[in-house]
């Protein structure tokens, strides 16, 4: 019998090892799997490369993981936002590495990684600083730069509903990077508000088919990052 459910966020992330590459879903707090991230803070492994659109806010969630010194390198498109101070401080002090990637190139690198495509050409960033040193080629008179697919050891993702096969549906704009990250990670770990019986999710509505998911954990009432930040919370 297939049952991808595990009993706690801790059990879900306990195989994440030192030096792992971890994709973390979310666009700001929307879709950020905060309970899985907090379990990873408790787990304490370090030297991580994290691929995520932003770098978190306040001192909870992704910002807490960075503040705890567990992240060696961030690959992201927008590392500063309102209430983000942990990453900027460490970056200015030279204590964390940054690979800045245009958001669409980041998404396509993840999509390509998941689809077994090692590299691709894109017009994005041509003629800018972010294309410097990259191989380029002209197709039909237009210049493109070579970008590499991204894969990860783990993905941490938040979805709305799952079944025990790992089929997923998301909520509104909280899906964002989640579906493509599930495809590009060796082990995709997903927190969901609810697990339903197999067959309850209409096959026409499945966004992430279960083949891309390894572990599912129920977090019925996830913490809201902005509320924690507003309350001045610090994790742990």
């Amino acid at each position: 019998m297939i049952d991808k459910q595990v009993s706690s966020p801790h059990e879900a992330i306990t195989s994440i090892h030192d030096g792992a590459t971890v994709m973390i879903g979310g666009f700001g707090e929307a879709g950020s799997p905060i309970e899985l991230i907090h379990a990873l803070v408790d787990h304490g492994v370090g030297n991580l490369t994290v691929i995520s659109n932003n770098t978190g806010s306040g001192r909870v969630g992704l910002a807490a993981l960075i503040a705890n010194g567990q992240v060696r390198k961030m690959i992201c498109s927008y590392p500063r936002s309102a209430n983000s101070m942990v990453f900027p401080e460490l970056f200015r002090a030279g204590k964390i590495e940054l690979e800045l990637v245009p958001q669409g190139t980041l998404a396509e690198r993840i999509r390509a990684g998941g689809a077994g495509i090692p590299a691709f050409y894109t017009a994005t960033s041509v003629g800018t600083q972010l294309a410097e040193g990259k191989e380029s080629r002209t197709f039909d008179g237009r210049e493109y730069v070579l970008e590499h697919g991204l894969r990860a050891d783990f993905a941490l993702v938040k979805a709305e509903k799952a079944d025990r096969y790992g089929n997923l549906i998301y909520n509104k704009t909280a899906g964002n990077f989640g579906p493509i990250m599930c495809t590009a990670a060796e082990t995709a770990i997903v927190q969901v508000r609810e697990v339903v019986e197999v067959g309850e999710i209409d096959p026409e509505c499945v966004v992430t088919p279960g083949i891309f998911v390894s572990r599912v954990v129920t977090v019925a009432s996830p913490e809201q990052e902005s509320a924690l930040v507003a309350a001045g919370s610090v994790y742990p």
């Binding site: 498109s77 927008y78 590392p79 900027p88 940054l98 245009p102 958001q103 669409g104």
Partner: peptide, 12 residues
């Protein structure tokens, strides 16, 4: 802190 978001994708 350098941050680009989706701007380069949009213009391209």
């Amino acid at each position: 802190i350098p941050a680009v978001g989706g701007a380069m994708d949009l213009v391209a």
